[in-house]
């Protein structure tokens, strides 16, 4: 009875989390949902006489793999949320149809199957207990496969290093190079800081120039975009106008950026972003 309750609770949670993972726009949320599913599964393993696997599931999947996913998400850009407009014609319809069809088929198959009474693992683990039995299998019958997995892991680690490593083709720019670039650019001075007002001193507030107009460049364009997308615009129409304008500039740049495919160009962009002064090309 306890198992049944556990199952139903966890089944509902895991299916809901899985659906949430698929249908959430934000990759970070998806990752968290996946973590939920994995934890549920770990409990289900434990319930089904597989405590070793439950531990491995939590340590390897929820611990290591999910962390890796989150790291990569940070690296690739947390802000990049998917747009939900489907570009491939019919893809979504067919995908849902196929998914439902497949699930139906599995359910039909499993439902039609006639299972013998559960044997349980009590018999096989009677001698020496559960962990010993698992160890016995891994290190005797499957020792060869086990050794091969070690080779696989080493290869994967090496492969990841090779793939993620970036060869530096040019010298790292020195301070001199950077300042030269800055002075050759259209803006030698640092960008103005955000404005400080009685009503707010947030980083998304444009500063005012001596003539009273809003300094667009004082707002980070990503922040401006966020503000526009989430309707966090300040009440003052002048400032709101400046933020909107800044967000439009950002949109224009994003149009262009993906086309710059060369690594060098990419490096320059990143270098420029690293510097506090936005030395754009």
């Amino acid at each position: 009875m306890g198992e049944t309750i556990t199952f139903w609770v966890l089944a509902v949670v895991s299916v809901g989390a899985a659906l949430g993972m698929v249908f959430n726009r934000k990759a970070v949320y998806s990752a968290l949902m996946l973590g939920t599913v994995m934890l549920c599964l770990a409990v289900l393993y434990a319930v089904q006489d597989a405590p070793f696997l439950a531990a491995v599931q939590i340590i390897v999947y929820t611990g290591a793999i999910m962390m890796l996913f989150l790291f990569v998400l940070m690296l690739v850009g947390v802000d990049s949320s998917d747009s939900f407009v489907e570009t491939l014609k019919g893809q979504r319809v067919w995908a849902v149809l196929a998914g439902i069809g497949f699930a139906t088929l599995i359910i039909l198959a499993v439902g039609n199957a006639i299972f013998a009474p559960e044997v349980g693992l009590a018999q096989v683990t009677a001698q020496g207990g559960y962990i010993r039995s698992i160890a016995l299998l891994i290190f005797t019958k499957y020792v060869f496969a086990f050794e091969i997995t070690s080779a696989l892991l080493i290869t994967a680690a090496l492969g990841a290093m090779v793939l993620a490593h970036r060869e530096r083709l040019t010298d790292k720019p020195t301070q001199k190079d950077l300042s030269r670039a800055r002075f050759l650019g259209d803006r030698p001075s640092p960008l103005p800081g955000p404005g400080t007002y009685a009503t707010g001193n947030a980083i998304d507030m444009p500063a005012l120039l001596p003539d009273g107009s809003a300094a667009e460049s004082s707002v980070n364009r990503y922040i401006a975009r966020y503000d526009v997308e989430h309707d966090h615009l300040p009440d003052d129409p002048r400032l709101a106008e400046a933020i909107k304008h800044r967000a439009e500039e950002d949109a224009d740049e994003r149009e262009i950026a993906p086309r710059a495919e060369e690594q060098d160009a990419e490096a320059e962009v990143r270098d420029a972003e690293e510097t506090p002064n936005e030395v754009t090309k």
């Binding site: 067919w94 699930a103 499993v110």
Partner: peptide
Amino acid sequence: LSGLLFAIGAMGVLI
């Protein structure tokens, strides 16, 4: 449950 999760995962891959 396993089949459902599998189908949901596959749909996610496709969508």
